[in-house]
Amino acid sequence: MSAQLKIAVILSSTRQARLADKPAQWFLDFARAEHPEITFELVDLRDFNLPFFDEVASNAWAPSQSPEAVKWQQKIAEFDGYIFVTAEYNHSITGALKNALDQAYVEWAKKPMGAVGYGGLGAGRAIEHLRAIAVELQMVPVRNAVHIGGGDFMAISPLGANGEMSEIAGHIEGSAKGLLADIAWWGAATKAARG
């Protein structure tokens, strides 16, 4: 088992009009600069044609029959932790993300997760909901998160000024550093325990 951590940065919206690409790419670049000892990879839910969950049970209890679900499970099994870039839809995560979470179980377990959220309130409610789901999937939710809300959200959103992430980077770099420190520590701890 390699000592180097491999962390997925998961784009959790599949809408054509999504904002996710901007914060995801900014976070990926920031993470790679802050922690060159960790491998970060962008994983886009659009690249996985996941059907709605329709298995007899979670793959904790029975192997998945859907080839798309198995492909997804194999991909997320590659990682030692996850950072979800998520919007907030009606006080929760996207339906696409909930479905993707449900399509696996054993692959998520005993690994840390964190979030970069965006929306009017910085996706605070969505991230809290995501953490509760992660607990049931036996992930380790970390304390720190990046919340892009209010004026910062409107500064980068096409609904507002549609500016670049560089315009708000100074406001969110501190929380991004905290999130990355949490993921690095818990990633190393859980990887050692799994090994």
Rank of each mutant, 00 (worst) to 15 (best):
A109T: 05
H91S: 12
A100L: 00
K111G: 01
D80S: 05
W108D: 01
A115G: 01
S92V: 10
V70R: 10
A104I: 00
K98R: 11
L45T: 13
G119R: 05
P112V: 06
A87E: 14
A57M: 08
V85A: 03
G81E: 07
E78D: 08
F84L: 01
N59H: 06
H91Q: 14
A57I: 06
F84C: 01
K111M: 02
L101M: 12
K110D: 06
N59Y: 08
S58M: 09
A87N: 10
A77D: 15
P51D: 15
S58K: 04
L97T: 06
G95K: 11
A87Q: 08
E107C: 01
N49Y: 13
K111N: 03
E55C: 10
W61L: 15
V56I: 15
L45K: 09
T86C: 13
I83V: 03
H91P: 05
S64G: 14
E55R: 08
L50E: 06
V106P: 01
Y89V: 12
A123Q: 09
S92P: 05
P67T: 10
A109Y: 00
N49E: 11
E107F: 00
K111C: 02
N49V: 14
N49F: 15
F52C: 09
V43R: 04
Y89G: 11
G81P: 00
P67W: 11
V106S: 03
E78K: 02
A126T: 01
V106E: 02
R125Q: 03
H91I: 07
Y118F: 12
G122T: 07
W108N: 02
Y89E: 13
M113Q: 02
V43M: 10
V43C: 09
E68I: 11
G120P: 02
E88H: 05
E88P: 08
Q65L: 15
L101W: 10
A60G: 14
N59C: 04
P112S: 03
Q73T: 04
S66E: 12
A87M: 07
Q74V: 05
E107Q: 08
V70T: 09
G120V: 08
A100E: 00
D54R: 13
I76T: 00
F48S: 04
Q65E: 15
R46P: 14
V116L: 06
S92M: 10
A109W: 03
A62M: 13
G95N: 13
D47C: 08
D102W: 04
P112N: 06
A126F: 10
P51E: 15
N99F: 06
Q74Y: 10
D80N: 10
Y82S: 06
V70L: 05
P63M: 09
F84T: 01
G119M: 04
K75F: 05
E107V: 01
P112Q: 03
Q74K: 14
D44C: 04
G95H: 11
R125E: 01
A104E: 00
P51W: 15
A87F: 13
L97Y: 02
F79I: 07
E107R: 02
A62C: 08
K98S: 09
G114R: 02
A60Q: 15
Q73F: 07
K110S: 04
E68Y: 07
